[in-house]
């Protein structure tokens, strides 16, 4: 293949005879990997690998984990079912069914509030969009596992008390 006339990058400079043989470079490469291998055999403890379930990485407070719904002082959800979050959601993972609240001051509340955690991309736009600070992703929970797809669809009650591991 020839690239005449194209600007040559620094990597495309003329190779010396030794370089063009590649053998020496291959051996040097083998040397690098061998160095790592030997070092790791004798210093197993210094490897950066984390033994995950036993050890856990500490994430920043701003890490976006699984969502939660915040509560009013009386324990009812702050959410007014305006559906800004489900509108802005790029993954279309939030489903809200609104209903009439008996208190005319609140007027509207979510009868059901479901998040499909399998569809969620954890972008945090729902937090941004929420006018009532009702949805937050500050739980820090990232261990989300279940044995059926249905269990990844979490409901309002779950999201209101979302502090434990696992799914529904």
């Amino acid at each position: 293949m020839s690239f005449e006339g194209l600007p040559q990058g620094s990597g495309a400079k003329e190779k010396s005879f030794k370089e063009s043989l590649y053998l020496w470079e291959v051996l040097r490469g083998l040397g690098v990997t061998l160095r790592h291998l030997v070092r790791n055999i004798f210093h197993t403890g210094e490897m950066p690998t984390m033994q995950y379930p036993e050890e856990k990485r500490v994430y920043s407070d701003r890490f976006r984990g699984r969502h939660r719904l915040t509560k009013r002082e009386d324990g009812s959800p702050r959410c007014v079912a305006c559906q800004m979050c489900s509108t802005v959601c790029p993954a279309d993972c939030i489903t809200i069914v609104a209903a009439e609240h008996p208190d005319v001051e609140i007027e509207k509340y979510p009868d059901s509030f479901e998040i499909d955690l399998l569809r969620c991309v954890y972008c945090g736009l729902c937090e941004e969009a929420c006018p009532c600070d009702a949805i937050r992703m500050d739980t820090g929970i990232y261990e989300i596992a279940a044995d059926s797809r249905e269990k990844f669809v979490v409901d309002k009650d779950f999201l209101l008390n979302n502090t434990t591991d696992g799914t529904r």
Binding site: V80, A81, C82, M84, E107, K108, P131, C132
Partner: peptide
């Protein structure tokens, strides 16, 4: 300005 709960929004 209660647009979040207003159907007209």
């Amino acid at each position: 300005v209660d647009c979040p709960i207003c159907d007209q929004a």
